[in-house]
């Protein structure tokens, strides 16, 4: 293993090696995460409803998603006659690619990150905005009323919920004193480090709600809204185009939960087990909460969704931010 890495470093240089190894690892992570999450989601859905979920393929149906992927690969990719072909084909890629960049920024352990950027947190949220463009491109180019409505809802929802998401993250940034994700983790670990869930419980609540809305998941699945809009923005997508949108959705779930674990749960901090294992455990705990929320809460109507963001979450996160700033200032003056 180390010999292989040395050879790589000799031919590609340090940066090239990081890129190659990181890309392969992240591609694996994306695939395994999506397959696991789809299976896990169906299992939890079944369990919550007193059913068993997938049981036929593999122990407890673990191979179900793999077979679903094989089925999806065999499907015909239909491109409707009236769509804007170039944009239509490009949209899933635009929606998916930022996920790779965002994953490369996550700190999987104290020093284990593919690209260590000073303003990592800001960059992650910026890339999140780009993926929204992919969704709207797909919705617009589909030339379908349901897709367009879904796309417009996605945009307005994401704009509304990006604010509380950022503001709750900013409260943590104030505590940590850095936008670098590695340093935010470092601020929670060490001698008298305290996970920010203790200092910022309100921010965590706001973050989880806003993150669920950002990833367009139930109870905020207004852009997809099966009962109203067929399938929302991906109504016209079949086969691989649909699969890529699907993959993007589950990857973004991993990313927002990864950021949540970094900001509030101390990243890779934990006893006994190695850091990356702790990180993955925390991420999947948050993902479990998201899945449970989907199978527990009724969907919000669109105006309720907007009200929740603008009238409740944003003021609350602003108050939280102000209170955090004030307390920090008092502590600074006091000491």
């Amino acid at each position: 293993m180390t010999a292989l890495l040395d050879t790589l470093e000799g031919t590609l240089g340090g940066w090239g090696t990081t890129l190659l190894v990181g890309f392969v690892a992240l591609a694996g992570l994306i695939t395994v995460n999506a397959m696991f999450m789809v299976w896990f989601e169906r299992k939890v859905a079944g369990w919550v409803q007193g059913r068993l979920g997938p049981m036929e393929h593999g122990p407890q149906g673990t191979l179900q998603t793999l077979l679903d992927v094989v089925k999806l690969l065999g499907k015909e990719s239909i491109i409707p006659a009236q769509v804007d072909r170039k944009v239509f084909l490009l949209a899933p890629v635009v929606a998916f690619l930022p996920a790779l960049a965002m994953l490369s920024l996550l700190p999987y352990d104290n020093n284990l990150t593919m690209t260590d950027v000073e303003s990592g947190l800001l960059l992650v949220f910026a890339f999140g905005g780009v993926s929204l463009m992919g969704i709207f491109m797909g919705a617009w180019s589909s030339n379908n009323k349901f897709a367009l409505l879904g796309g417009m809802r996605a945009v307005s929802q994401n704009i509304a919920y990006e604010l509380p998401l950022l503001l709750s993250a900013m409260a943590v940034v104030l505590c940590a004193g850095s936008l670098n994700l590695g340093e935010i983790v470092a601020a929670q670990t060490g001698e008298n480090g305290l996970w920010f869930i203790v200092m910022q419980p309100v921010a965590l609540g706001i973050y989880l709600i806003a993150a669920t809305a950002e990833t367009n998941r139930a109870p905020f699945d207004i852009p997809e809204a099966e009962s109203e809009l067929v399938a929302g923005f991906h109504t016209e997508y079949t086969g691989m185009g649909f699969a890529v949108f699907f993959l993007a959705e589950y990857t973004y779930m991993f990313i927002v939960c990864g950021i949540g674990a970094t900001l509030f749960l101390g990243g890779g901090d934990g006893p006994l087990l190695p850091g990356p294992v702790w990180f993955i455990l925390k991420v999947y705990f948050l993902l479990f909460l998201m899945v449970m929320a989907r199978w527990t809460y009724p969907r919000l109507r669109f105006d309720q969704l907007m009200n929740l963001a603008w009238k409740f979450l944003i003021p609350l996160s602003l108050i939280n931010l102000l209170a955090t700033a004030a307390v920090l200032k008092f502590v600074e003056v006091g000491s």
């Binding site: 079944g46 007193g50 068993l52 449970m292 199978w295 527990t296 809460y297």
Partner: peptide
Amino acid sequence: TLFVGLKVTLKKLMGRKVTEQ
């Protein structure tokens, strides 16, 4: 009330499954 709902689904999650294979 959000937690009340979560309690219900969590109980169901752990509870007996009625599916007959």
